[in-house]
């Protein structure tokens, strides 16, 4: 139990997927204009990454490793994750339209989020078992959501400020993201 909590804290804060491992930067910068949109994306990411980690872990343990095909894991994971998101989307549309409309466009968008693949591969590299993979995936996604919601909040404040002309738009967002990344380095002292 203790190790699972450590995995969640570690993947959410210490090895934050965006600010420490630099995965999923594209949606991190692209969808962080509004807090509401980024929170929706965050929820969708939590949903997808948790399921994807579980499936990838099962696939690796019971198909790829016994057959000695470790080296194919990247391709297999891409294939399976893409299909998985599609199926999950169809499933939600049919059975839970409320969740489907809430997640909206973000669900299919996540298929192309490298963070999802990144988590699946890191899990395997760390030699996690099934339960650990699920928790690690969940923690990572929580870290992603935390980062994107924080950046969205910063951006809504930045918009009110009177900035020098050259800094407006993308430059100030990159600076803010960089400062956030430095701030998150502080969590590395949590590592034990």
């Amino acid at each position: 139990m203790k190790s699972l909590i450590l995995i969640i804290v570690g993947s959410a804060l210490i090895h934050n997927v965006v600010l420490n491992q630099f995965l999923g930067i594209c949606s991190f910068l692209g969808v962080s204009k509004q807090i509401k949109a980024s929170a929706s994306l965050g929820v969708a990411v939590i949903f997808v990454i948790t399921i994807a980690s579980a499936v990838a872990s099962l696939l690796y343990d019971y198909v790829l490793k016994p057959l000695g095909m470790d080296f194919m894991k990247t391709i297999v994971f891409i294939l399976v994750i893409a299909a998985l998101v599609q199926i999950v989307e169809m499933f939600l549309k049919k059975t839970a339209p409320a969740i489907y409309t809430a997640l909206g466009i973000y669900l299919p968008l996540i298929t192309t989020n490298c963070a999802v693949l990144g988590v699946a591969l890191t899990n395997v590299q760390n030699g996690y078992n099934f339960i650990e993979c699920v928790f690690s995936g969940f923690g990572t996604a929580v870290g992603y959501t935390l980062a994107i919601v924080l950046l969205a909040s910063i951006r809504t404040r930045i918009r009110e400020e009177d900035l020098p002309e050259p800094l407006r738009g993308a430059p100030i967002v990159l600076i803010a993201a960089a400062l956030m990344s430095i701030a998150f380095m502080g969590f590395s002292s949590l590592a034990f």
Binding site: L79, F91, K93
Partner: peptide, 23 residues
Amino acid sequence: VVLALIGLVVGVGLVYAGKKFHV
């Protein structure tokens, strides 16, 4: 062969899901 099999399973799964969850 294994990759083709996985692809096949995934593809069939998608088609089935598409039919089953058709809205």
